[in-house]
């Protein structure tokens, strides 16, 4: 009975295909990779290349349509315009500030979670860190708008001590952005600390190293890829943000706002593309710089 059904299965087309694929590794690989590669290549890479190309085109001032006349005007405008230079510096400065703030806040809490808290508390803390990620980004930014407002809770708390709320501006935007990306920085650093074996820390202290020496010579080098992985998130997300600055940043602009205005209101896609090349260039420099740390594998 079993032999009969087995013979039938073994002679089937499915079986023959299976045998063929088993002996042809390249075909198997091609079948696996073609669909996702097709998607990422065709949708994403082609779009990025098109963006690069569009930056060298121009807009017909009468019809508002994109004309495929080749020109360096957009690139020159972006590179030499004082508006673009100051906004680029401001955006870059904010991205660096937000990233440093997030790492400084994330290190102690991640260390407490990974090396101090009991197993039960560890799970509770992971959930507590994850939960705000599911609350809408917009709502969190808006919550900070009401926290930072002149009659908001921040003012209410610090007023008795003679303080005032930073209000809406660059400081408010940096606080809000650091708040928004904090879980993305805590989680990789926590995972990285989890991978640091306790035995190494004990060996270090047995050999006479104090707490700081152990942190500096053992923990930090092992943790570095995880810290860099976390920094990619906060850096890149800040670099491209334009909504938070609208909500809590007053009248200040970031690179994202310039791109957004030129796509929408100004209807100048070529100029918007040229501006968008700035954060692309910055991120690629950043990725190239951190590639050797192995951070890209711990994303």
């Amino acid at each position: 009975m079993t032999t009969q059904s087995e013979t039938r299965v073994r002679d089937g087309a499915g079986h023959r295909a299976s045998v063929f694929l088993y002996s042809h590794v390249r075909v198997r690989l091609a079948l696996l990779i073609s669909a996702p590669l097709f998607w990422l290549g065709l949708v994403y890479i082609a779009a990025l290349v098109a963006l690069l190309v569009t930056a060298f085109w121009t807009v017909d001032s009468f019809t508002g349509e994109v004309r495929t006349d080749w020109t360096f005007d957009n690139i020159i405008t972006v590179l030499t315009g004082s508006l673009y230079q100051s906004v680029t510096l401001r955006t870059l400065g904010m991205a660096v500030l937000v990233t440093i703030a997030d790492i400084v806040i994330a290190l102690p809490i991640a260390f407490f979670m990974a090396k101090v808290a009991s197993a039960k508390w560890q799970r509770i803390l992971v959930i507590a860190i994850l939960m705000p990620l599911w609350a809408s980004y917009l709502v969190k930014a808006y919550a900070w708008r009401s926290v930072l407002s002149n009659d908001g809770i921040f003012q209410w708390i610090v007023q008795p001590f003679g303080g005032t709320t930073p209000g809406y501006g660059i400081p408010g935007a940096v606080i809000t952005l650091a708040y928004l990306w904090l879980p993305y920085v805590i989680l990789p650093i926590y995972a990285g600390l989890e991978r640091v074996p306790d035995s190494l820390l004990e060996a270090s202290s047995d050999l006479g190293a104090g707490t700081w020496r152990t942190l500096r010579s053992i923990v930090l080098p092992l943790l570095w890829p995880a810290i860099v992985a976390g920094s990619i998130f906060s850096f890149s997300l800040t670099l491209g943000d334009y909504i938070t600055i609208n909500i809590v940043g007053g009248a200040n602009q970031m690179l994202g706002n310039l791109v957004y205005t030129n796509v929408g209101a100004a209807n100048n896609l070529p100029l918007a593309s040229a501006i968008a090349l700035i954060p692309i260039a910055i991120i690629f420099v950043y990725l190239a710089a951190v590639r050797r740390t192995g951070a890209l594998n711990s994303l």
């Binding site: 963006l51 491209g240 796509v263 991120i283």
Partner: peptide
Amino acid sequence: LVILPIALPGIITGIALNNA
């Protein structure tokens, strides 16, 4: 290539696809 869409800022993905 797989991680690029989250490594690049969202506005880049957005404008690149909008343009495409």
